[in-house]
Amino acid sequence: MLELHSINKKLGDFTLADLTMSAAKGEYFVILGPSGVGKTVFLEVVAGLLRPDSGRIVWDGADVTFTPPERRGFALVYQDYALFPHLNVEGNIAYGLRSRGVDKKTVKNKVRSTAELLGIRDLLQRKPQTLSGGEQQRTALARAMITEPNILLLDEPLAAVDPREAERLRQVLRDIHRQGDTIFLHVTHNVDEALYLGDKIGVMLDGTLRLVSTPEEIFRSPTDREVADFLGLRNVIHVDEITQGGCLAAGVEISISITDNSVAHVWIRPEDILLSEKPFESSARNQFRCKVIGWESSGRLLEVKIAVGDLALSALITRSSFDDLKIESGTILYCTFKSSAIYCF
């Protein structure tokens, strides 16, 4: 188990303030926070590359606050992968084992099996500069995983690859995580990524964890306004029952694109809900009659609260549509949203 006790670190503009958390063996812990708040500093503190100003880092009951990085077994994968440009893919992956003085034959075999696992077996002789972003990330993951780290520290691992590769890599991360009891500590700004991968999600704002929760609970957890704003979370709906081609929530049947039985929540982003005076023909599968309950200003947009039967939803619309729709409390409208715009988890 990894425990961080009241970690403080000031580095330039960035501060870790009284950060306390713990992660159990085999856990996938995602730290979710806005871009550019120095989440890399957090990872470097855990890795032992930066020394905290105060606080303790405990691994398996032993204080490792002052243990040098090479003796912690916490492998760090940087956002730009940090592959060694003078070594080929094989040399990169083998680096950790060679540093530990593992014999040549074992290294060769393990490199091959790890490369196999990450689907880069054919790239072993290539130099990192000749690889695509996704291939570089797989190489970096292989290089870290081959050392069988206690903790794998991941810095925005999916941020620098194209969306399709990101989706594949997400699956890869989930797969390699399930193969052992390595703790994955993954920092990202991407909510979908956190929901998909995390066993636990910690929301980091102002250098401290403001909320730690599970993906199932995170939207229902009592939380402060800033966290809710950061998560942008409205319209997270608990699913009562999966039906043919959809799901039932608060008595309303919603059409969704995924209908496996593990879906417990759906999340409709307020900006994806369209409001109209009359029903209209569209490819969107969800269209309901609704009643306006209230509204409030949300930046340059307006958040209109509506009720579809017992189901309360929020929709974000512009001020001019608000005027066009002649919205008042109790106005009857139609709300429309695509099933593909619904996130299920």
């Binding site: 990085p69 760090l76 940087y78 940090a82 680096y95 950790g96 540093s99």
Partner: peptide, 21 residues
């Protein structure tokens, strides 16, 4: 780049080994 050396350290290389490799 410093972070190449940092990455090497987290992979288990001592400062001396990182310097030479």
């Amino acid at each position: 780049p410093v972070h190449l050396e940092s990455a090497a350290r987290t992979l288990g290389a001592s400062p001396c080994r990182t310097f030479f490799t």
